[in-house]
């Protein structure tokens, strides 16, 4: 044939490339459902829970309550976006696309890397969308702290990208998000993203500290300077990240053996 065997190469980075990332992102942006859940739903929740006029004058550390709810809803949006991004592997496995990709040099690690990058991009978009709406509706927090909230919240939702991947490999379903969506709402509730945990019984508060959204919630709101156990939150995120990444890696290795 026209290509000599000696000139054939394996692609760098296991097949990870800007072209691949751009095509995957384009596909994600075309998906109306994921756009609604990522860009519109969190902002709508913010408007429902956070537009009370009294919140604008109520102070929480360095900001007002409006800003506090804005950050919580942005993190919730990023949770959904990153989980959905990770869980796309379920759809792609169900459709047999991962089998088609096994006929190419693409390495499983590079594939997962692209999924996580797309998921994190969508997570960032969710945060920016809520922050824009929040600032139009009177959220008040010094700019530097606002940015810090966004960056920390965004970085911490990596744990949910790993969660989505793990579930995506665990549940061989095309509609895995129908199951994960309600679970995320419960996790967000336990993480204190919908309403401060002080509103719950002591027993629930103690339990909540062990759920995966708790650490993300506490850390992303730390720039307000409000109370909250930061070292416990860091530990919470570290442990859950280890569990989800380990789980995803375990299921992934099973998957590549079988397919």
């Amino acid at each position: 044939m026209s290509i000599a065997a000696e000139t054939r190469r394996i692609p760098p980075f296991g097949g990870f490339s800007p072209t691949f990332y751009a095509l995957e992102l384009k596909r994600m942006l075309r998906n109306k459902r994921s756009m609604i859940f990522t860009l519109i739903a969190p902002s709508v929740f913010f408007l429902l829970f956070g537009s009370d006029a009294s919140y604008r004058t109520e102070r929480v550390g360095h900001g007002n309550t409006t800003a506090y709810i804005m950050v919580s809803m942005a993190v919730y949006g990023a949770m959904i976006a990153t989980t959905a991004g990770g869980a796309m592997v379920a759809t792609e496995r169900a459709l047999g696309w991962s089998r088609q990709l096994r006929l190419t040099p693409l390495k499983p690690v590079a594939y997962v890397g692209i999924k996580v990058l797309v998921a994190m991009t969508m997570g960032a978009a969710a945060i920016v969308a809520v922050f824009v709406v929040g600032n139009l509706r009177g959220a008040d927090l010094p700019f530097g702290r606002l940015i810090l909230c966004g960056v920390i919240g965004w970085g911490c939702t990596l744990v949910f990208a790993a969660f989505g991947l793990f579930m995506g490999y665990l549940l061989p379903s095309e509609n895995v998000m129908q199951l994960l969506g309600p679970s995320l709402a419960l996790l967000a509730l336990a993480g204190g993203l919908f309403t401060p945990l002080d509103n719950f019984s002591q027993g629930f508060q103690d339990f909540a500290k062990f759920t995966p959204a708790y650490g993300v919630g506490v850390l992303s709101r730390a720039p307000f300077g409000s109370d909250g156990n930061v070292s416990l939150a860091v530990l919470n995120i570290a442990v859950w990240t280890a569990i989800f990444v380990g789980g995803a890696a375990w299921r992934m290795s099973k998957d590549t053996q079988r397919v």
């Binding site: 290509i3 000139t7 054939r8 190469r9 394996i10 692609p11 097949g15 490339s17 072209t19 691949f20 095509l23 995957e24 190419t104 040099p105 693409l106």
Partner: peptide
């Protein structure tokens, strides 16, 4: 096709 093409050298 573009996505798959990005993986092969050449």
């Amino acid at each position: 096709v573009e996505l798959t093409a990005s993986l092969f050298r050449p």
